[in-house]
Design a protein around this nucleic acid. Structure first.
Lengths: 234, 234
DNA sequence: CAGCATCCGCTTTGATACTG
DNA sequence: CAGTATCAAAGCGGATGCTG
C-alpha cells in the first residue's frame, strides 16, 4: 500500500495494517494462534490466494507476524503473531464491538464461521475464580471446535484442547445463549445441548457485568432461540 | 469499497471505515470537531479532493458523520461525527498508540501537523481535580492552535477556546515536554515558552501514571530537546 | 474562493491457472 | 499443501474544471 506519509501514529498504524484483508488476517491469527496457510484461507472466505501470500509477506517484513519453518522431515510452515501483533487484540475486539450493532442477521451473501462469533466471547465472559488452576472448555458448533481457555482471563482460540475439562456440543445460538446467561443448563439441554466432562467448569465463567451493550453484537436476534443458526455445517 | 461479506463484527467495521483515508478523516473530525470541507483538507495532506468528497458522502450515508447545513445567508456546511462515530475515539487512539513505536522521527517525505501530536495527549494527561469547574488551556505551536479541555477527563480539539484560562506558546517539543512532566515551568520558559493567563491551570493536568510506554510515541527523540522540532511553521 | 464533480493514467485487487 | 504467475477490473491520485 502507498504510505500516507503523515507523521502521526494513526497514519502509521494504517500504513502497517490498513491494507485490505490485513486486519482480517490478524483476526484469524488471534483466534487460531499459530496457523498454516490453508487454515488462514479457511477462515478468510473470499480472499485471493495471491493476496494472502502477499499480505503475509508484508506482515512478516513489518514485524507483526512471524513465519516458523517447522521440523525438517515433513510438516509445513506456521504463521504466528509476534508480541507486537498480539497487542492488536484489544483493538480488533473493540472494532468488532463498535460495528456489532450492524450484526442483526447475516445478509444473503454473508459467509459465516462460528469461530468468528467466539471473538466477542472473550469480552463477554469473566473468570469467576481467577486464582484456581486453568480450565479448558471446548465448544463444538458448526465447523471446527473452539476452545475457551479460562485462566484468570478468558481466551478464545480454535486449537483443540489436549484434555478439555468440559465439552459443549450445540448449535451456536444455544452455546451463546448459555454462556451469556440467557439459558440455564437445563434449558440449553432441552434445546439440544450435549455436555461432556465436568459441568462445574462451566460455572467458572459468567457474563461480565459490562454486558448491557456488549451482548448486542452476540445476541440481537441473530442467535436468538426463534431462528435456526445460519452457520453452514462444516 | 467491496464488502467482505463476512458475518463478523470486525469485517463489518472494515466495511464501514476500512477504506483508504476513512479513519484519517475520522481522526480529523475527532480532533477538530465540526469542520468545513477545507478544514478537513488542510488536516489531510495528500488526499485527492474527489476522495474526500466521496468518503464524506459514504460516512454520512453510513451514519458515522452528519452534514450540517449552516445558516441560510452565507456560511458553509459543517461535517461532524455522530454519537456512533464518536465511539471510534478510543479505537483511533489505541491504533495510534499501537503504532507509536514507529514514530521515531519523521521520514523525509512525511508531512507533519502539530495537532496530530495532540491526540496522544488525551491519553497522556489526567485531570487532577476532576470535581472542579472545567478549564481550557490553549496551545499555540506551529500552525493553528489546539485547545485542551480539562473537565474530568482531558479532551483535545483544534477549536480556539472563547476565553482560555491559560495560553501556552512554544515549539511543539517544549509543550510536549512540559505537559509530559519532563520540564519544569521554569525550564520550559528558558526554552522559549511564553505563558499567558493563569499558570495554576497548568497544575491541574499531569501525565497519567500509565505513561511508561505511552510516552514513547510522543517523545522518543523526535521532540526531545536536542533536536529542533520538525514541524513546518505555517 | 469554498465545495465539490469529471477525467485519466497508474496501482492495487480479485479470479483463476499453474508449480515445487 | 503452500504458495507464485497472469491478467482483467476496480480503486486511487493528481490535475483540472465547473458552480454558487
Amino acid at each position: 500500500m502507498r504510505s500516507y506519509h503523515q507523521f502521526c501514529g494513526l497514519a502509521k498504524a494504517l500504513d502497517l495494517v490498513g491494507d485490505r484483508w490485513t486486519l482480517l488476517i490478524v483476526r484469524e491469527l488471534l483466534l487460531q494462534g499459530p496457523a498454516r496457510y490453508s487454515d488462514l484461507q479457511r477462515g478468510l472466505p473470499g480472499i485471493a490466494t495471491n493476496l494472502l501470500g502477499t499480505r503475509l509477506r508484508e506482515l512478516v517484513a513489518r514485524g507483526i507476524v512471524e513465519r516458523r519453518e517447522s521440523a525438517p522431515p515433513v510438516a509445513t510452515p506456521l504463521f504466528a503473531l509476534t508480541a507486537w501483533g498480539e497487542e492488536l487484540r484489544p483493538i480488533v475486539l473493540a472494532l468488532g464491538r463498535w460495528a456489532g450493532r450492524t450484526l442483526i442477521s447475516p445478509a444473503p451473501r454473508d459467509r459465516v464461521r462460528s469461530h468468528w462469533l467466539a471473538l466477542p466471547l472473550e469480552h463477554l465472559l469473566v473468570d469467576r475464580t481467577p486464582q484456581r488452576a486453568p480450565v479448558h472448555i471446548e465448544l463444538r458448533t458448526g465447523e471446527r471446535p473452539v476452545t475457551l481457555e479460562v485462566a484468570g482471563e478468558v481466551r478464545v482460540h480454535t486449537r483443540r484442547s489436549e484434555r478439555p475439562d468440559a465439552v459443549l456440543i450445540a448449535p451456536p445460538h444455544v452455546i451463546i445463549a448459555l454462556l451469556a446467561g440467557r439459558l440455564t443448563l437445563a434449558a440449553a439441554r432441552a434445546r439440544g445441548l450435549r455436555l461432556e466432562g465436568d459441568a462445574s467448569a462451566l460455572k467458572r465463567v459468567r457474563p461480565s457485568s459490562t454486558g448491557r451493550r456488549s451482548t448486542v453484537p452476540v445476541t440481537s436476534g441473530t442467535y436468538g432461540p426463534a431462528r435456526p443458526a445460519p452457520v453452514r455445517a462444516r
